[in-house]
């Protein structure tokens, strides 16, 4: 279970709306390498992770990703708050406005809706951990792409925090992979699915 704390993980206080930037940043909510995909990936994978320490790591990182979802939603909300229908249309958010008004809804920057096929839960611990390592790098690349376009420090500051967390999670998953491999035959890690073919 979870307990909600009524605070963000890192402050988001944006005073200058910029709906065009919101359209880009919302990709880290419901896009292919976004925070929803990250959280659902780790929280789904943990059930078949037959190493208690690594299952714990998946739970804790998956939980932190929930807080990142909330931060991205806060950024998008604050960047679009108070914008008129006309301003949203001019910024490229016209179609989004028609379907969602000023709400938060998970989609990629290009309008593709969030889909569970953006992540895997394969049921093979090594396969899943390699996916997790790749996912952290893909998210970091997306944050780098966003940061090249963001000029407002009020937006860049929380985005830099989130980018940094991708780096830390990559490091931890690398350590998790090593811990898992230590319980296998070092001559052949990939002979079978160690959690299924006992």
């Amino acid at each position: 279970m979870w307990t909600y704390e009524r605070k963000l993980q890192y402050p988001v206080n944006i005073t200058r709306p910029n709906p065009a930037m919101a359209k880009f940043i919302m990709s880290q909510y419901g896009g292919p390498d976004g925070e929803i995909a990250a959280s659902m990936r780790y929280l789904s994978q943990r059930y078949s992770m037959d190493n208690k320490k690594v299952a714990g790591l998946l739970t804790d990182i998956g939980t932190e990703e929930l807080a990142h979802m909330e931060m991205i939603a806060a950024i998008v909300r604050q960047l679009t708050k108070g914008c008129s229908a006309e301003e949203l249309k001019e910024s490229g958010l016209g179609e989004y406005y028609i379907d969602h008004t000023g709400a938060i809804w998970p989609q990629a920057a290009g309008g593709i809706p969030f889909n569970a096929c953006e992540f895997q839960s394969k049921g093979d611990p090594l396969t899943d951990l390699f996916e997790d390592l790749a996912a952290e790098q893909k998210a970091r690349t997306t944050y780098d792409n966003i940061l090249r376009l963001v000029k407002d420090h009020e937006v860049a500051d929380p985005i830099r925090f989130l980018r940094q967390r991708e780096v830390v999670h990559f490091q931890r998953f690398g350590e998790g992979l090593r811990m898992y491999q230590e319980q296998l035959d070092s001559k052949n890690y990939y002979a079978f699915n160690p959690s299924f073919d006992k």
Partner: peptide, 12 residues
């Protein structure tokens, strides 16, 4: 609980 500010609103 009902009176606590919503964290995503920020300070404007």
């Amino acid at each position: 609980w009902a009176d606590v500010p919503l964290p995503w609103e920020g300070v404007r």
